[in-house]
Design a protein around this nucleic acid. Structure first.
Lengths: 234, 234
DNA sequence: AGTAATTGTGTCTGCCGGACACAGTAATGT
DNA sequence: ACATTACTGTGTCCGGCAGACACAATTACT
């Protein structure tokens, strides 16, 4: 089922030498996705960057879906090594590393939605996130839910602050701001809280990542310290 | 720019009567997306449900992107009315309403990613979320960031727990679980924390929404009460 | 009646993912 | 040496997609 993501490259000895490799195909796809967005990644386009034709790719990959999965796991990469830290600092650093990854490959935000098969790198990220939370007294389920909520936050902040090459309607942040202020000038009465919130929010851009992260970590800390206080003196 | 989303239906008086309406087109699209997923929504397919051909739709909509935007804002709907509540209960109820919306129309999770033009309903949701936070002492930027982190959490939980009709590779939750446990039996050594976390997490499914939400609300409460304590006695 | 504005249709292009038959190539068995 | 077998790459074809464009049909205003 997930041989492509997990399997070792088996080399059969009959037949002609393969002209490309699965990793090479995935890297070509990553290059295209990085430069022109996920929508620019087509079998034709990938083949155009390699010494093969479109159909040859299907010798290495059962379909585009699986190729995107391989690309995603490869682009995500392994989580960077971090020294041992207290859980809060560790989780914070982990979240920042994750944010870096999504910033480097914005299309990962699109290709890793919904249910999918997990590759080794994605699992390694989860593993490292969990590692930060061992010894906190949280149950396994709580640990999973904790890194999930951190991941959600990081993802959506990245989604909001990145400019996707291609794909979307090419809206810049300024376009959105302009459209929004224009709407609010004509419809201010319908959105009073939004109007005042935006007025008092001037200049506080791009604080969303740290703000939400600190709230989440605060909430976790409350749970963890409460848990410790009720169990350890017993 | 966003006349489609915001404009009143202007009726010109020359020419033949329109056979359909923008709202009718969007509703047809919503019906298809609900039943068969976002990928099943094509101009052909929509026209097939209406007494017009594909190309007639372009008289009402400049392109598919804009049509999806109209569909999304319409499907999202206006946030339900809620009685006045303390901010924490209000925000909790708001998050649950949002979750309901995403559950009713899972494709909204796909169609409302990245930068896009905001429609009246989407703005109304933001407005209502902000309303819950007025009087908490948070700045406008902090209020925005707060509802953003709540939204992120709700979105990603919904994304994880919904079954998309069509679109994805048709993986069920069981498929993922099975694939994961199979991987972990052969690669347990590489993922020790994940292995133990999953072992102690048995039976605690679908707690993610409440867990994360309570952590976030706890974190916000800490900030709000701290803010109040430092300003009001002064 | 004539003109202008507006709506619906049919045709066409270029792209996409993918099925399939077929030709070429390299190692193996005899 | 030679046939067999396993494997790789190619060309052709299909159905479906978004959308451009020319054209016919319909309605209201002058």
């Amino acid at each position: 089922m997930s041989e492509l993501l997990w399997g070792k490259p088996s080399l059969p000895s009959r037949g002609p030498k393969p002209a490309v490799t699965l990793a090479g195909i995935a890297e070509a796809g990553i290059r295209i996705a990085d430069a022109e967005g996920l929508d620019a990644v087509s079998m034709q386009r990938i083949a155009g960057e390699l010494p093969v034709t479109k159909m040859a790719l299907y010798r290495y990959v059962p379909g585009k879906t699986e190729l995107i999965a391989v690309m995603s796991d490869l682009a995500m990469g392994a989580p960077p090594d971090r020294p041992d830290l207290p859980w809060r600092e560790a989780l914070h650093a982990w979240a920042m590393d994750l944010y870096d990854g999504f910033t480097r490959h914005p299309w990962l935000l699109l290709s890793t939605v919904g249910r999918r098969l997990l590759g080794p790198n994605e699992l390694a990220w989860i593993e490292r996130g969990l590692a930060a939370l061992t010894g906190t007294g949280l149950t396994g389920g709580e640990q999973m839910d904790s890194i999930l909520v951190v991941t959600s936050h990081v993802r959506n902040i990245a989604q909001q602050s990145t400019t996707f090459p291609g794909h979307t309607t090419g809206l810049t942040e300024e376009d959105m701001q302009e459209s929004l202020t224009q709407i609010l000038t004509t419809e201010a009465a319908r959105f009073p809280h939004l109007t005042t919130a935006l007025r008092t929010a001037a200049g506080s851009e791009n604080q969303g990542l740290e703000f939400g992260l600190q709230r989440i970590l605060d909430g976790l800390e409350l749970l963890i310290s409460g848990r410790k206080a009720s169990t350890s003196p017993h």
